[in-house]
Nucleic acid binder design. Structure first.
Lengths: 98, 98
DNA sequence: GTTAAACATGAAGTTATGTTCATATATTTA
DNA sequence: TAAATATATGAACATAACTTCATGTTTAAC
């Protein structure tokens, strides 16, 4: 095991970005849907526009999502599909934690 | 995908606990070693005793580690081996993020 | 029963994160 | 070009996380 030191900071960085209920759901949704507009996400997440937008730009900034404009809408999608594998781990993990 | 709502909070919770360079290294070390005392961890991590201890009790509190005393030493070990699978994901993930 | 070793704990300070609110920008439509 | 829709942005605040430092507790050795 022992992640290489270089990879370590990056791993923590990515995990930190993912480690939030709303952002986890965003990843889940974008894994199911290929791409979604901000308002579609707002609705599905039941999360206010501004807050959703903040989360999205944060995730984009950190390289997890990409965005492209189409008319009035901006569509977000997963940039690194592999991120999803972390979710799968968590899903399968019967972690009786907490 | 779409983690069940109940699992979601827990997943974020676990990820938040893991999402720290030192704590990632602790998990890596305890995956390699089965159990380690605090001072062994301090040394391997090159991390001050108090800080290491804080991280350890945090991880224990959140159910990731277990501890048992043996004389003057306290040995920590992974409570949920599955946590390691998340590290494996990250390792294999050529995430060109950031 | 003192001392030392190994570890835990708690307060304090600093920084980072999350959230809200008000406002700005871009695009389309009337 | 004015209004409406979709989204972004930034300031301000509240809360949580990280770290340090000083001190407490437990166990063992003398």
């Amino acid at each position: 095991m022992e992640l290489a030191a270089e990879k370590l900071e990056k791993a923590a960085f990515i995990l930190k970005t993912i480690a939030h209920p709303v952002r986890l759901r965003i990843i889940g949704l974008l894994n199911d849907h290929e791409q979604l507009s901000v308002s579609e996400l707002c609705e599905k997440l039941d999360c206010e526009q501004s807050l959703t937008s903040h989360h999205l730009s944060n995730m984009k900034l950190k390289g997890l999502l990409s965005a492209r404009r189409e008319g009035k809408n901006i569509y977000y999608s997963l940039k690194e599909k592999q991120v999803t594998s972390i979710l799968t781990c968590l899903e399968n993990c019967n972690c009786n934690m907490g």
